[in-house]
Amino acid sequence: MSLTPTASQTLGPFFNYALPFNADLTGGGKAEGRRIFLRGRVADVNEAPVRDALVEIWQANAAGGYAHPLDKDDARPRDPHFSGFGRVLTDAGGGFSFTTVIPGPVPFEGNRWQAPHVSVAVFGAGLLRRLRTRAYFPGEELNADDPVLAAVPNGRRALLVAEAEDGGYRFDIRLRGDNETPFFGD
């Protein structure tokens, strides 16, 4: 039997009292790897902040392993202190911030590798669907050969690479307009 997926609907503005949030993926600093912040700002077409947007991230641990049964490779072991999942709400300035680690490279098909990256999703009032993107890290050699980054039009790839800042990285999300963040099909 084949069923059709349920239609998504907008998040709406009135949810934050009802949902638990988790901005620290490192178990209070116990996870392996280089601890960083990943922060940014969600902005609209006028560069105005988008407050009360829900930002979710999903990533591999420092060894490149996902905390999931479909990823069981001993070369990239699980880290019991690293869940890989974070969820926060943007503040009045559209800002969000996670404490996490730099993920390791993740395998792709045919002995190829994906560059270290963080999967990012944005939900918000006024957005009828989830927007899905990825944050990459500057200076990673594997960026040049990453199969997902390669699918992004050449001139827009740099928009998916976070900027180094003291203690971490900045990944701004521009929903629309000049320098609009590339989003992936859902």
Partner: peptide, 27 residues
């Protein structure tokens, strides 16, 4: 829906391969 003109992307979605990063998720 009035706010999508300020918020919704104007560019088409990028079609990219679905990888281990997308077929896994929080449990």
């Amino acid at each position: 829906y009035f706010r999508t003109s300020q918020l919704a992307p104007s560019q088409p979605f990028v079609e990219a391969p679905v990888t281990l990063s997308e077929i896994t998720g929080p449990l």
